[in-house]
Design a binder for these strands. Structure first.
Length: 271
DNA sequence: AAAAGCCCCTGGATGC
DNA sequence: TGCATCCAGGGGCTTT
């Protein structure tokens, strides 16, 4: 579920409220993707400084160390004064003086990992290979084109890989390529500078607009206040196989790339 | 180094 | 209704 917009919307929905909170206790449910990395009880007494985002990871900064949180495919966070009795898929509760942060994740591809610091092995391992943040000035059109140049894989796969630019998942890769008029199967290395510039702008544009709309709620995404997103209503191609292109009415086509569905308009998007 | 496949896990939709 | 199959917002790891 969660790509950059959903993770950022989640962050915005509780970061201010949890900042300054004192951790009272931690409850862990079933194992997630990786072990927490320390005794849960030893988090008690620490203070939450704030919440940052790097790619699709949330970084919950503590006065000592930090928690790296990832929502995987089906994870969502909620932050409330009180939480109901934990359900079968509630796998992590951070009980604080300001409320309880709860991770619900049916598929358990998500994770909560403690790292003693920013340069700790856990942080470096998980964050070290990540590409540039698309919504910052560090996302440079010339560098983006140069990065595409050295990859022979289909451009959609390169967007998803996350080592060139982070945060673009399966929905927004298809959407950005549509906006840029580029066929998802095109080899990244063959994309011209003008087209790379269009893709660069499209990535920024689609992610920023998705954040503004609260993300995409396809099945069950909601932010930490329990609110749904609405960007799925503006999707041009994602999950619209066979439906008319919103620009030219040609039926949207779906193919599989790397075991993931890709959607595109065969008329508007050129190889 | 980069690309391609394989998994992790659960639930919902679909088909017989 | 029951059961099998396929598919799903990710991404690390192993194999080519």
């Amino acid at each position: 579920m969660p790509e950059l917009p959903e993770v950022e919307v989640t962050r915005l929905s509780f970061a201010d409220r949890i900042a300054g909170a004192r951790i009272e206790r931690v409850r862990v449910g079933k194992p997630l993707r990786w072990p927490l990395g320390l005794q849960a009880e030893s988090l008690a007494g620490r203070t939450v400084r704030g919440v940052r985002r790097r790619g699709k990871y949330l970084l919950v900064d503590l006065d000592e160390g930090l928690l790296l949180m990832h929502l995987g495919m089906s994870g969502s966070l909620s932050f409330a004064d009180t939480q109901p009795e934990p359900g079968a898929h509630d796998h992590f509760d951070l009980v604080t003086s300001r409320g309880t942060l709860r991770l619900n994740d049916p598929r358990r591809f998500g994770a909560v990992v403690y790292a003693p610091g920013e340069d700790a092995q856990e942080s470096v391992k998980l964050l070290g290979r990540l590409g540039v943040e698309p919504l910052t000035d560090a996302f440079d059109a010339a560098a983006f084109h140069a990065g595409l140049k050295r990859r022979t894989a289909p451009v959609k796969q390169v967007l998803l890989a996350g080592d060139l630019v982070v945060g673009v998942g399966n929905i927004y890769a298809s959407e950005a390529l549509f906006l840029a008029g580029i066929r998802p199967t095109s080899r990244a290395s063959r994309i011209s500078r003008p087209r790379a510039d269009r893709l660069h702008a499209a990535v920024r544009d689609v992610l920023a607009r998705a954040v503004a709309k609260g993300g995409s709620t396809l099945r069950d995404f909601s932010n930490a206040r329990g609110e749904s997103g609405y960007f799925q209503l503006e999707a041009m191609v994602y999950d619209r196989a066979g439906e008319p292109c919103r620009i030219c009415a040609t039926p949207v086509k779906t193919i599989r790339q790397g075991q993931r569905a890709t959607f595109f308009c065969p008329h508007c998007q050129k190889p």
